[in-house]
Amino acid sequence: MEQFFTQLTNGLAVGGIYALIALGYTMVYGVLKLINFAHGDLFTIGAYLGLTLLTSLALTDHIGGIAGILLLAVMAMGLVGIIGILLDRAAYKPLRTSPRLSAVVSALGASIVLSNTVMLVYGPSTRVYPQGLLPSQVFYIFGLPVPVMRFIILGASILLMIGLYVFIQRTKIGTAIRAAAIDQDAARLMGINVDRVIMLVFFIGPALGGAAGVMVGLYYGQITFTMGWTYGLKAFTAAILGGIGNIPGAMVGGLLLGVIEALGAAYISMAWKDAIAFFVLILILIVRPTGLLGERVAEKI
């Protein structure tokens, strides 16, 4: 039982990060039906930009630890969001009316370009965030040690996700995004500037990915230029698991994937961890062909 709870917290911490990245996939997919394979690399860029900002501006020295980190995260999110918009302009916009898979190949090309750019700019070796910025206390729950940062990571992910959910559900712009996701032409007829909506989506999605990147850098301390591919694949899996295009689905999918991985590794086999996760995904999709919560994408026949 002790093992179970420990592994549950392990899984939720990782799952929170998957969920945050999955949101970017899901938002872009919801509006454009595009699997943005470069999304994982935007996450990597977020982590690297966060490192650059942290070391060059020395924010935490000037305005204190917590405020500095928050400001840093916001700046990195903004920059990654802008890169997201530029990426859309360069790689996806010209392919808006083309077959869907052409945009997927363009996304794969963009992924190669982005990860290799990071490698050439920052060098291929592992980069390390400065230490000691975050609280390192350990909580004891029922006598089990749980690092407090795990809660903060999970909490921050959930907070960002709820914020996004409220934004999409309760605001006018959010309604426009939902409308564009259902039917772009009809949305246009209703006076919605669909291009503006797409731009916004390509800002928010990557920005959330960038936030996840900064969080990974701050907490785990170590970043590499190839990490986006692994995280991106996991996050895509999470988005599909929950039902792609569906924001609560991405959250549920991410957390669930993290937990499946942790429990599968703990109780079945460590070395088969990823295989177990994919196997569960396949089983779930066989039973529920559009993910756990179902997709929120209008199907045209």
Partner: peptide, 19 residues
């Protein structure tokens, strides 16, 4: 070390011009 970067760019450009 630049070869994959150029390859990725070529991929995007070819796809955009021949969707």
């Amino acid at each position: 070390q630049y070869r994959l970067l150029i390859f990725g760019l070529a991929l995007m450009i070819m796809m955009i011009f021949r969707p």
